[in-house]
Design a binder for these strands. Structure first.
Lengths: 155, 155
DNA sequence: TATTGTTATACTCTATAACTATA
DNA sequence: TATAGTTATAGAGTATAACAATA
């Protein structure tokens, strides 16, 4: 054989890259959409709920911090926290040490909503994971750690 | 001790659910956003590029099939493939056996774009994966298989 | 001047409701 | 009637550009 190639539906031969990358990207994309599709009707969107959930678990953060965590622009994050604030789920507070900074915190309503919605959205996945063996669960736990490390890496 | 509880930033005790679920959801969400953030300027969005990539790898599909694969409504998928068609990356063809059905196929331009963009978006992740041990890569490969199974499960 | 955050505007993605065409 | 697909409309999420306030 002359060179490695991927076979495509139309017979195109493409330089294949690392097959593991493609498998992971497809798996991650499908899982993300599946989790997102558990969203209920009058619900917050996934971006706003993600921010609220983060604040509930980790405590107040500035706009810049939140935008870096989610890898969106500060302008985008400003609009997301605007929605949370307009709905009464989060509050803005000026940083006393540095008047340029704004700290966002969840309200009591926001904290309760974050806990409740996380439980609801995760329910179906919890059920699927309980069907796995201990070995398989261990594999997923280790994979979650590796994926976090890769996703959060600077480069 | 009386019952398991999660400790939160504000001292809230919540019934914890399966910690593995939360770890996986956070890891998947962060990785999805990281891959998405590799998007270039005049680029297709992630939904349209995902559909184009699928068609390039797997061959023509009907609208219904595509909407089920991505877990979006047929109306949403219709608009996504509309964008692909308007840009000349995909074509509609009436199914000769059943005139209600429409088959979508990538054009030559679309196939080339799918291959090129996949390579570009996956480059950074390929570099990160090459830094891992064979054992770690094996863990991720097995995890990708498990996650696909869970995400694609009917329930 | 540099940093932090916001607003104006536009595009992508998704949904629901109402519709057309085919079986 | 039921199925496959489309269009109209609206809201979430994101981006870039331009701006205000503070350091």
């Amino acid at each position: 054989m002359t060179r490695p190639a991927t076979s495509s539906a139309d017979g195109t031969d493409a330089v294949p890259g690392d097959p593991l990358v493609a498998e992971l990207v497809v798996a991650v994309s499908r899982m993300y959409r599946r989790v997102r599709s558990e969203r209920a009707d009058g619900d917050l969107g996934d971006a706003a709920l993600g921010v609220l959930s983060y604040l509930q678990k980790n405590g107040p953060r500035t706009l810049s911090e939140l935008s870096e965590i989610d890898r969106v622009t500060p302008a985008s994050m400003s609009q997301t926290v605007n929605r949370l604030a307009a709905l009464g789920y989060a509050v803005r507070e000026r940083d006393p040490q540095d008047g340029r900074k704004v700290l966002f915190s969840p309200t009591d309503d926001g904290r309760a909503l974050a806990i409740r919605e996380r439980a609801r959205r995760h329910a179906w996945m919890g059920a699927r994971l309980r069907e796995l063996s201990d070995t398989e669960r261990g594999t997923l736990a280790e994979a979650a750690r590796l994926l976090r490390g890769i996703a959060d890496s600077e480069r």
